[in-house]
Amino acid sequence: MQYTYYPGCTSETTAYEFGRSTEAACKALDIELIELKDWNCCGATSAHSMSLQLNYELSARTVGLAQEARLDMAVACPGCYQRVLNSDHRLRSDEAFRREMEQVLGFEYNGQGRIRHLLDILTNDVSLETVRQKTVKPLKGLKPVAYYGCVLVRPPSLTGWDDPEHPALMDGVLEALGAEVTAWSHKVDCCGASLTLNRSDIVKTLSNQLVDHALEAGANCLVTVCGMCHINLDARQAGQNLPVFYLTELMGLAFGAPAKDVAKWMKKHVVDGRPLLKSLELL
């Protein structure tokens, strides 16, 4: 299975372990990720906060880079995914915008590749059956709550592959990995996202509520697919000590990634998840 791949800026820095484990998990599933050449930042919250047009145009360049390959584009970061998805939708539906972008950025839009999130690819292209078969170390005893964050499955008119209020696909993947998924009602409640450094009071309130809800539900860890959510939930805890994993880290672990690779990812977290994994004999 081949996809073009848009890693996003944080995959090399604050979400380093997300980037590396995404690559490892995809390799184990025979997903070939072809990184877009010379990709640029999507602008994240800051671009659309200062200029809606700049936000569309930055991601139009990304979409342009992928046209020649005529493959679906895999994106792991929900922020990048939403920005690029919005821009691709506009390129598809607004002819004047498409023509202008083709001229300004020098590409030809054919729209043959769609913008896809990893979770959608895992469930609908790879299949949970394959995930189950590739699992050599079932995550027995791990009781995660699946946290999707706010923008991964929204707006539903553009995403369309999961329920926008109570999504289920990550729960499915975790179950296929052998984890005992814990039910909870806060899968898409926002963590405070980009207010992390400028209004950290708000972020602490929202993120700590989520961590508390996870503990109330009886979870022993929280699983996310977002670098921004990970920082807010992992590094802003008020002593709850709840490990926060990336889904891809757990996939790597279950698919039998070398222990030293897993350790390299896990040591990046503020709340160390290794004692929990060791107590369950998963590490």
Binding site: C9, W39, N40, C41, S46, A47, M50, S194
Partner: peptide, 24 residues
């Protein structure tokens, strides 16, 4: 009205303008 929010957006975008990507 939220000066710190604005300051972060500004710095974030300046980074992209400078490098094409975010440099934290």
């Amino acid at each position: 009205a939220e000066k710190t929010v604005y300051a972060l957006h500004r710095s974030f975008l300046n980074s992209i303008k400078r490098f094409g990507r975010l440099h934290e």
